[in-house]
Design a protein around this nucleic acid. Structure first.
Lengths: 206, 206, 206, 206
DNA sequence: TATGAATGAGGTTTCATTCAT
DNA sequence: AATGAATGAAACCTCATTCAT
């Protein structure tokens, strides 16, 4: 069975990956600005000059990482299957997926996200490749549930944001070292239950 | 009419404020690392050397800003009054307060928060002076509501985090330029209503 | 009994002394370049600005110190009395005087001397006010001893230099922490004896 | 004919030398503190940043120079051969060596020595690599001469110091611009004769 | 294509000196 | 005359990027 591309191309792609992985590790550990190209080269086990054969600049490396991230997150298929399950199972499935799949990138995200704030081009790309698709997917599911009468007639797009926000915000509290959040994060089942119940039923005493 | 401190002391305090304000503007605009001491001095309209008469280092300036922030957030009194109101009014009051009071610092926070991720000392201080008190205050209120039977017997501390997380996460989506979040943020009343309803009643079709 | 100068003049002279003493302490401890005007002002217990009412610059302060030093060293009279004593007593007297009188300035000298090397103006002044008079005085004594036939017909000026050099060089070894030299310096009598004997009789087995 | 090390290693060593030479020139001319890294880079004909590829700091450059100096001074062999010669020849040989070999570094020493006074780490290294070996070597020779009865039963270690001190002190007078010392230094033969005679026979009229 | 030494712009910080009070 | 905050030039050093090998 033929491989994709020539041997040269495959080797180049491999190098690229190797560099991105090194960069990811260093960005995660030190953050973008405190990571030097020397650090990155060392982490990727190549010479500094080699970086520039694959990426135009340190900045471009960051952009490349966002591109990789986007490809990592392929959740659609999984959730489509959950469409016909009951509401509780649906949320539980989704939350479990999020927890399981973002934890590994947690550090990398912590290295990239701060950069987004003051880096419009990066932010736009991150948003386009990563955030918006995720939002759209959830939004679609929510919308269909509303149409089916499983949800109150809520503001779908906004509720989607609030749902995602809970996870995002919790990750921030995590980063800030809040012990309760850390405890919650390390007991996913309990966290998922509380979250699901809260989203579906609210906090009110019935 | 007596002033506080000698004239010299007042002038020094005034200078300090002037520098912090300049730094806040520049950090908000460019982020910590891209902000140069030259930028900061220019924004504060002092010489570069003057910065160092008031702060030991650029880093210390950042720490100073967190200190200022902590003093800006005095919400306790406000919420205590809301204790005896019904659940909806309580949340609505709190959320309105948060929205009203953090919007002005939105930019400054965007300048500081990214730094927290890879700056343990800063993070600890920010957490101690700013996050934990806010969490503790909300947590206390939630707890008392539970005791009074106004809320289900939820996990108080965790629900507190999820509540705060919604706001934090929404701010992140805002920063990332999500149009729906921006729209929501600029119509506070609608946002508050949706949030309150979601928190209290959940999304389920009753 | 009348004082010299008006009260104002006396007070100014007193301030000048106070500043020079502070500078001497700091230069001795840190060396000229590492001593800041802030250090000096603190040591002299005046404000930084005050320094400049008495000295034109930090450099001028150094020059002022050399001037003070020159006045401290008044050895002529003492040695003139030793003229008629025998050779051994003469050297012994002189060496004892040197040891006794330069030890207190040891530190100050260590603060100033390094600066001489690359500071022509200072060096010239130091040489003129301090070194050359001392050399001339010893040289005169040596010359008279030669004329009286107490010494071989040596090269008077050069022998004078070698004599002084022994003391200077020993101080350098002292500064460099050579333990033998430190030990010698702290047992002046033994040092004086060895030196005197060596100068007069040489090292040869008779 | 094989060279030592790879080509790259040889180039690096060459660069290192080039930088040290530049630094030596500038330190000799201006002294350590007045020499800027910019000066040094210009003198070595490299970019400022290049300095830091070879030395960790300006301070480290100074340490490097001391290291070089230490290697320049290999006098043992020479003197061992002089062991069996008569006393006068021995001293004459040694002094001639010192004069011949330190004159070229005179300027460099003048750039480094002042720094020793207030720089403990540098002083220790200079003492260990440079002063103490020289002292030990002379001391050994003196001691053996005493044992053979060629010298009076003098205090060997102390006499060694006084011997070295003469040379050190004379160099200081030289630095300070004393004309007699300069004249002596530029007529080595006469200087050596006077010194040797003074050391061996003393100044007394026999 | 891979290397890593060389580059130099630009960063933070220090400190002698000035000057309004 | 004394003060000490303000000043800004200049220092040391870092690091993204280039380029000869």
């Amino acid at each position: 069975m033929a491989q994709i591309g020539t041997r040269r191309e495959r080797r180049a792609a491999e190098r690229r990956r190797q560099i991105l992985e090194g960069a990811a590790r260093v960005f995660a550990e030190k953050g973008y600005h405190r990571a030097t190209t020397r650090d990155i080269a060392a982490a990727a086990d190549v010479a500094e000059g080699t970086l520039y054969n694959y990426f135009a600049s340190k900045d471009d490396l960051l952009m490349g990482l966002v591109g990789e991230l986007a490809q990592l997150d392929r959740q659609q298929a999984m959730l489509d299957e959950a469409l016909d399950q009951d509401l509780g199972t649906f949320f539980r499935t989704y939350l479990a997926y999020r927890l399981g799949h973002t934890s590994p990138y947690q550090n990398l995200l912590a290295g990239i996200v701060p950069e987004l704030v003051h880096h419009p081009e990066l932010r736009e790309r991150y948003s386009r490749d990563f955030i918006q698709p995720a939002l759209a997917m959830i939004e679609g599911h929510i919308q269909r549930r509303i149409e089916r009468g499983q949800l109150r007639d809520v503001d779908g797009p906004l509720v989607t944001r609030l749902l995602i926000s809970m996870m995002l915000g919790l990750q921030m509290l995590l980063i800030m070292g809040d012990p309760v959040s850390q405890d919650a994060w390390s007991h996913p089942e309990r966290l998922i239950n509380t979250l699901t119940q809260m989203i579906i039923e609210g906090v009110r005493q019935p």
